[in-house]
Design a protein around this nucleic acid. Structure first.
Ligand code: FES
Ligand code: FES
Lengths: 144, 144
DNA sequence: TATATTTCGGATAAATAAGTCTGTTATGTT
DNA sequence: AACATAACAGACTTATTTATCCGAAATATA
């Protein structure tokens, strides 16, 4: 459903939020180890997220990544679109040139329902909110 | 959502059904051209489908692929599982080692809802039924 | 039996995704 | 100013997916 890169991106941002909510900036090494992802690959992804202004970053000693109110409106959907493109949200799931009600593929009408649910999943809660749930112990980013 | 191979597989089987319902066996060339897929790759996929008994095949002149009542219970879900594995239906969408209510990732409860809808999409109508809809002109496998 | 047709099976090639490495730039500390 | 730290940028490697190629096996027809 999501690419590896997108999974790491989502977990990274949520982890960064959990730390930013306690005013801690975090480095690649810490992020990667806490979400169970390869360090170098995570670094590449964080750079993209930073360039897209989905997170903030500061170079140098005591630098690292962070999230603040200027990033609070970024949704999971934004992240997926940035990294995986929008094939999950638009275009024909069976690969027909156009997805439409007029010329629907055999799965079209069911795909529409699935996409509605996917949209809810990726837009109903903010990344910050998801981080709060992690802090509360309701959900988690890593298992031993 | 689906791999290229899975898309071609789905379209191939539905196309084969549309022809089998009129007692016509079809060859790779005809299938590939009617679903807009590369011929050699389609051939490979058809071999897998045949080996898994999701379709029937006959070698030699007047041979080709077909579907009959012995294939009528194959679902879209079976096809996806064969070709893409079951990552769409089980396992954590964010890549955690285990997907469970006890140790849920931040997306778990929403993922469950999406998966329910995906399951409906892939099991509610038989491939044969989908073929009938194509025959009736309600849906289509290819656009010009 | 010879031939043409069509699937089967495995090897190979090309494209994309996943992941690594290495040097550069910015910045805080001494 | 010199140094250490940590993000940035781009080239590189590896793995997987997508796609092609070619010969072997099966089978209908002449
Ligand atoms: S036409 Fe295929 S999903 Fe809409
Ligand atoms: S734990 Fe992640 S989807 Fe269930």
């Amino acid at each position: 459903m999501f690419s590896q890169a997108a999974k790491y991106a989502i977990k990274s941002i949520i982890y960064i939020w959990t730390q930013s909510l306690e005013d801690r900036k975090v480095g690649v090494k810490e992020i990667a180890s806490n979400i169970g992802a390869p360090e170098a690959f995570t670094a590449k992804i964080l750079q993209n997220l930073s360039k897209a202004n989905f997170i903030g970053s500061v170079k140098g000693p005591n630098g690292g990544f962070y999230s603040d109110e200027s990033h609070a409106k970024v949704t999971l959907k934004d992240v997926i679109k940035l990294i995986d493109g929008d094939h999950l949200f638009s275009g024909c799931s069976l690969g027909l040139p156009k997805c439409s009600e007029k010329n629907p593929c055999p799965l079209h009408f069911e795909v529409v329902k699935v996409r509605k649910e996917i949209d809810i999943m990726l837009t109903s809660k903010s990344l910050k909110h998801l981080a709060v749930e992690v802090i509360k112990g309701l959900t988690q980013l890593n298992q031993i």
